[in-house]
Amino acid sequence: MIPKPTFEDDLSGLPTHAFGPRSLTWWGIIGFMVIEGTAFALTIAAYFFVMAQERQWAPGQWQPPGLIAGTLFTIILLLSEIPNTMVKKAAEAYDVAKVRSLMPVMVAIGLLLLIIRGFEFNSLHVMWFDSAYGSIIWALLVLHTTHIGTDWFDTIVLWRLMRTPHGESPRRLVDTDENALYWRFVWLSWIPIYLLIYWVPRMFR
């Protein structure tokens, strides 16, 4: 039988939230980032698998995708890390006012990116049903677009939430912090995809 409890540490002094690996939310986000990262990695593996079937890449009858939209997208995406870092820092500094003022910027950037993404689809010079080459290029782009889309939507919700009294709660700042972390994943994962969609088909022609 269990003996009577002996009371040791009093935990009432512990904080009720923390940033980074000390919080559960962070582990949740990291978990999903690893899952999505694995999915990206496997899609990339599939890309090379399809590529190994071809003598030429992009295969002869298709022009490699046009560079303008994709490159513009990449530049803006990379630059977006500046306001993103500012949001993250502000959240960690409990600066609710600053978070509230910066969130709309991130929302606007997300929207802009989604619009440019539309042009990217238009400049691939191949349709998904044309061949396995077309299919895999589209798959990479669609997969990444869903990440931009979901994070954009998250950011909108969070922005609205931050404007309510809930925004004052430190836990919402932790959420903001993790949302900014996720955005880093979104742009980091874009870099290899950008190369695979736009540059590798130019290098192996």
Partner: peptide
């Protein structure tokens, strides 16, 4: 497997060619 089955579904539903040898899939 989530990726594999998504690609299969897209082959079946929207006509991608991932697994179709005739269009250079495998």
């Amino acid at each position: 497997v989530a990726l594999a089955s998504s690609l299969l579904l897209s082959d079946r539903l929207v006509g991608t060619q991932f697994y179709n040898p005739a269009e250079r899939g495998d």
